[in-house]
Simulated assay, not measured.
Amino acid sequence: MIHEAQLDNLTPAQLRELTARLLNEVRHKQATIDKLTHENAVLKRMKFAASSEVFQGDQRSLLEDSVDEDLGAVQSELQQLAPKPASPERQTPKRQALPAELPRREFRHEPDNTLCACGCQMKRIGEDVAEKLDYEPGVFTVERHIRGKWACAKCERLVQAPVEAHVIDKGIPTAGLLAQVLVAKYADHQPLYRQEGIYARSGVTLPRSTLAAWVGACGVQLQPLVDALKTEML
């Protein structure tokens, strides 16, 4: 934390860095305020709306989908704006394990070179496994991404193949599954509560709130494409 008396001693580069950090914090706090304001407005309407305006049955389901999608988009933006911790703690995701009976395909990722900089041959000491839920029309499968751990016994250097980029970091859906959810919702007019039932019949539990969060996060990721198309059209 920098006190006002210390500002005069900062170099121009330090002042620019401080200004950028403060602007990022302001954007993060404003996004949080917008999220809470939106939630509050929706809850007030549900509780205090006149009987003619109260949502019933499928209307409420569709509204809840839209609210969850908006909140998912806001949450994704908040994560992008949130200050990055110096040493992020490893968190174990709290989600249901993917059904063991689903077919699985393994993708092995190993470093291109297992020769240490000191000249020693590194040994494989373990691996990390990440499972992604994939979807092809009518069929769910699981992708097992196995990243071997290689270590040098002499200098204790650890090497792993980098994690590939995903649409939703640390999430279980592949791009194929996300595409299926979006196409079903916007092209085939299948609301998320119906998709939830369809997927349940295939033995996969995907709550509507989870699907809505995915849709919102995809909207954020697709925004640059929307902006480019708008520029091209105009």
Rank of each mutant, 00 (worst) to 15 (best):
M1I: 13
H3R: 10
E4H: 05
A5F: 04
L7G: 13
D8A: 15
D8S: 14
A13V: 14
Q14I: 01
L15N: 07
E17G: 11
L18F: 09
L18Y: 07
R21N: 09
L22E: 09
E25G: 07
V26Y: 08
H28A: 12
H28C: 13
H28R: 09
I33C: 09
D34A: 15
D34P: 03
D34M: 14
N40P: 10
A41K: 15
L43H: 15
K44S: 14
M46D: 10
F48D: 11
A50V: 05
S52C: 05
F55I: 01
Q56S: 13
Q59D: 14
Q59S: 12
S61A: 10
L63G: 05
E64K: 14
E64I: 08
E64G: 05
D65S: 15
V67A: 08
D68E: 11
D70N: 12
G72C: 06
G72H: 09
G72M: 04
G72A: 03
Q75F: 07
E77D: 09
L78W: 15
K84A: 11
P88T: 07
P88R: 04
P88Q: 06
Q91V: 12
T92G: 04
Q96K: 09
Q96R: 09
A97P: 00
P99A: 12
L102V: 05
L102D: 03
R104K: 14
R105H: 11
R108C: 03
H109S: 02
P111Y: 03
D112K: 04
T114Q: 01
T114D: 01
T114F: 03
L115Q: 02
L115P: 00
A117M: 01
G119H: 02
G126Y: 01
G126M: 04
E131P: 00
K132F: 12
L133Y: 03
F140L: 05
T141M: 03
T141P: 00
R144S: 13
I146N: 04
K149F: 01
W150Q: 00
C152F: 07
C152L: 10
A153W: 00
A153L: 04
L158R: 07
A161L: 04
P162A: 04
V163I: 06
V163W: 07
E164S: 13
A165E: 12
H166M: 11
H166E: 14
I168A: 06
I168P: 05
G171R: 06
L182G: 10
D188Y: 05
Q190Y: 02
P191T: 15
R194D: 05
Q195S: 11
E196F: 03
G197R: 13
I198Y: 08
Y199K: 11
R201W: 03
G203F: 01
V204H: 05
R208Q: 14
L211W: 01
L211P: 00
A212D: 06
A212L: 03
V215M: 06
V215Y: 00
A217F: 01
Q223E: 10
P224A: 00
L225N: 01
L229Q: 11
T231I: 01
E232L: 09
L234F: 08
